[in-house]
Amino acid sequence: MPDDPAGKSGRSPSSPVVRFDAVTRRFGAFTAVDHVSLDIGRGEFFALLGPSGCGKTTLLRMLAGFEQPDEGHILLDGVDVVGMPPYERPVNMMFQSYALFPHLTVAGNVAFGLRQEGWNRSDIDARVKEMLALVKLSDFAHRKPHQLSGGQRQRVALARALAKSPKVFLLDEPLAALDKKLRDETQFELMALQQRLGLSFIIVTHDQEEAMTMADRIGVMHAGKLVQVGTPAEIYEEPRTRWVAEFIGDINLFDGKVADYGGGLATVDTASGSFDVVSKDYVQAGDNVCVAVRPEKVAIHRAEPSEKENVLHGQIADIGYLGDLSVYKMRLDNGMLIKASVANTDRHAATMLHRGDAAWLSFAPDAGVLIRS
Score class of each variant (00 low, 15 high):
Gly43Ala: 03
Val291His: 11
Ser138Gln: 14
Phe45Trp: 00
Ile371Pro: 04
Arg294Cys: 02
Pro85Met: 06
Ala343Met: 15
Ile338Gln: 08
Gln187Val: 04
His301Ile: 14
Leu332Thr: 07
Leu190Ala: 05
Pro69Thr: 09
Trp360Glu: 00
Val291Pro: 10
Arg242Val: 12
Glu309Pro: 00
Leu162Tyr: 12
His313Arg: 14
Gly356Asp: 08
Leu49Phe: 03
Gly151Asp: 03
Leu49Trp: 06
Lys129Trp: 06
Asp346Thr: 11
Ser200Val: 12
Arg183Pro: 03
Gly78Ile: 10
Ala22Glu: 14
Gly113Met: 13
Thr351Asp: 14
Asp333Ala: 14
Ala177Met: 09
Leu226Trp: 11
Ile218Tyr: 02
Met62Val: 10
Asn92Ala: 09
Asn310Lys: 05
Asn344Phe: 12
Val79Trp: 00
Ile300Asp: 05
Gly335Glu: 12
Arg121His: 10
His103Phe: 08
Val81Asn: 05
Ser373Val: 13
Ser122Asp: 15
Asp276Tyr: 00
Gly224Ser: 12
Pro51Ala: 10
Ser326Tyr: 04
Leu170Asn: 04
Gly113Phe: 08
Ala111Leu: 11
Ser9Val: 13
Lys8Gly: 04
Leu170Gly: 03
Lys297Pro: 04
Ala285Lys: 15
Thr345Asp: 12
Asn109Tyr: 15
Asp207Ser: 07
Asp70Trp: 14
His313Pro: 00
Ala233Val: 10
Gly368Lys: 05
Met1Pro: 12
Lys129Asn: 13
Asp184Ala: 13
His35Asn: 15
Tyr87Met: 08
Lys180Asn: 07
Leu170Thr: 11
Arg143Leu: 05
Asp184Gln: 15
Ser306Glu: 11
Ala177Leu: 08
Gly113Trp: 06
Asp34Leu: 07
Asn120Arg: 15
Pro90Trp: 06
His142Pro: 00
Ala107His: 01
Gly10Gln: 05
Ser9Asn: 10
Leu370Asn: 03
Asn92Gly: 09
Asn288Ala: 14
Ala340Met: 06
Gln154Ser: 03
Ser122Val: 09
Ala303Trp: 00
Lys136Val: 03
Phe275Cys: 03
Leu75Val: 01
Ala159Gln: 07
Glu185Tyr: 06
Gly41His: 06
Gly7Ile: 09
Arg372Cys: 02
Ile248Phe: 02
Ala259His: 02
Val311His: 00
Pro174Val: 11
Val278Cys: 01
Met93Trp: 05
Phe140Pro: 00
Gln96Cys: 07
Ser97Thr: 07
Ala223Lys: 12
Thr24Asn: 01
Ser306Phe: 04
Glu309Thr: 12
Lys56Ala: 10
Gln116Asp: 03
Asp318Ala: 15
Val204Ile: 11
Gly151Cys: 00
Glu238Val: 01
Gly273Arg: 04
Met352Trp: 13
Thr241Met: 05
Arg89His: 09
Gly320Ala: 14
Met221Gly: 10
Phe95Ile: 01
Lys8Asn: 13
Val82Asp: 06
Leu76Met: 13
Lys164His: 08
Leu162Asn: 05
Asp77Cys: 09
Phe20Glu: 03
Ser37Ala: 05
Gln152Ala: 08
Gly43Pro: 01
Thr351Asn: 15
Asp77Asn: 13
Leu253Asn: 11
